[in-house]
Design a protein around this nucleic acid. Sequence first.
DNA 1: TTGTAAGCGTTATCAG
DNA 2: CTGATAACGCTTACAA
Lengths: 325, 325
Amino acid sequence: MHEVAELAGVSRMTVSRALNHPEKVKEKVRLRVFEAVSQLGYVHNHLARSLSSNRSNVIGLVLPSLENSIFSQTVKAISDVLRPAGFHLMLAEATDDAKVEEAVIAAFISQRVAGLVLHGTQHSPASIRMLKGANIPVVENGDIPTEPIDMVASYSNRAASRAMTLHLARLGYKKIAFASLANNPRAAERQIGFLEALEEAGHKPDPRRMVAVSRGFVGGTEAIAHIEQSAPDTDAVFCAGDVIAVGALLECNRRGWDVPGRLAIASYDDLELMRHVNPPITALRLPRHEIGRRSAEMLLARIVDRELPARSADLGFEILQRGST
Amino acid sequence: MHEVAELAGVSRMTVSRALNHPEKVKEKVRLRVFEAVSQLGYVHNHLARSLSSNRSNVIGLVLPSLENSIFSQTVKAISDVLRPAGFHLMLAEATDDAKVEEAVIAAFISQRVAGLVLHGTQHSPASIRMLKGANIPVVENGDIPTEPIDMVASYSNRAASRAMTLHLARLGYKKIAFASLANNPRAAERQIGFLEALEEAGHKPDPRRMVAVSRGFVGGTEAIAHIEQSAPDTDAVFCAGDVIAVGALLECNRRGWDVPGRLAIASYDDLELMRHVNPPITALRLPRHEIGRRSAEMLLARIVDRELPARSADLGFEILQRGST
DNA sequence: TTGTAAGCGTTATCAG
DNA sequence: CTGATAACGCTTACAA
């Protein structure tokens, strides 16, 4: 910056101003500065800027998993809101483990991120203490927590799961099974919603119809195998996560089970795939994109505009009834 | 840090040393410092550290698209190598547009990233100038460029495409079509490989059998429609990207076309899905995970160990012959 | 509108 | 092994 200032014949302060608040510098001077900048190939040091001004332009995002394509929509939406505002994204994986999340949050606070998006909604006391102590805006994403740390942009896993189960009940299915991923706080909420709906519909819950399966298509294969073995009279299965529903459908095709005649299948997320298999799979349209957009907007409102936006946004969901039920 | 130093009864310098090089501080003092740190809930400021030491612990990653699940494997692998080394990941999208990439690179250099991973291999002269000027290690990823900026960890799109096409020719297919995504430098390389292979196999290229399609499953539908209209005697189609092959297979199923009897289908990437549809789809196993791992390792070797690692790694690929061909 | 001085929180360097 | 001092490159606050 020193050299730029010399070449432009101004002080470093004027260079700084020309870069950050161009309107506060006379046009002639501004142009001279820009000229010098490009001539020297000068690159502004945002590190020094952040340190000095105590404002950073980096947002941290903590995801449960980097491999799950479900999150790519959210990441994309966050990035799309952040970029035009001049903000950048740091990404980390917490694997739904509170200890890992703690380390990641500490690292992000060390980097002085301007705000944080957490997909997880279960945090260790130490994480919460750090977050509150850091005094930065935080948005939680993966579910609607009972005690938000700060802001929330999500839908309710429980409500979504309950709604889909009731939908199946209303369609006349009497023996509904539930397949979900193990060791996942969101899956646990979905199970609660499922059980609530069963009760509401007057169905008796049956542990034989509850199964935890692996991630990926194979999870669907496992679900069907379990149903055949433990509860062959099941007439519908709600696959509450990932691509399990597709795996289940493909397995039914393989076995020659008619869908939905022999077994109806409903999915949680509405991945593009759900519309393309045969029959297309009934699914929940979740606001994955909207969650990202709103999260980023909420953070920017606090950081840039110093507003106090609504602390919580329940972005809802929608049931897409298709041929599989 | 000041307060920590006071509470521990040492200078700030000693606190700094206890944090960064614990072995250089007497155990007794070190423990006192750590005690003070946790008592005060002190969080080290990495910004100031980076500024002062002129070393950052952030790596920038530039992807062509954040929505494409293909990249999640690479991101995951990079993150897994970086985390234990104490490095963090910044993510940005360049949409295969050199101008956007330029802005993203400038932003990352502004943030003083310690190294950069670029999935794209076509860069504007300005980008290249910035990158060389910044004097940081760079790994290119998406293809094997003819003029690497610095290091490369990839496979060759052209070679992979050529190999798969030759594979189809060897299987006896005579009228092979090629479906790919438009406006994508990697797709262009794949097309070259395809044409090379045709020539090598003694087939005459036929423009009626070349089609650019949309992203997603619908691309496959488009490919089949194009084949039926323009070149119905086609006996195999190589779907060179995304999930096009699955879309094509589903469309064939819908039309009652036998696969591979009426039309053989080969895919580029081997997504999990390829193994689960019926028939399973012949595909290229690309080293998506390995690319991420090697990229991160190459960067760390340069940044942390100050080694000069091999400048280029061709990570190869593999043909997975399955029922669809 | 521009410049001066002080300081952001850390580490490199050198002395003790 | 520890401490004093001067940076790192920028911005805030104030003065001109």
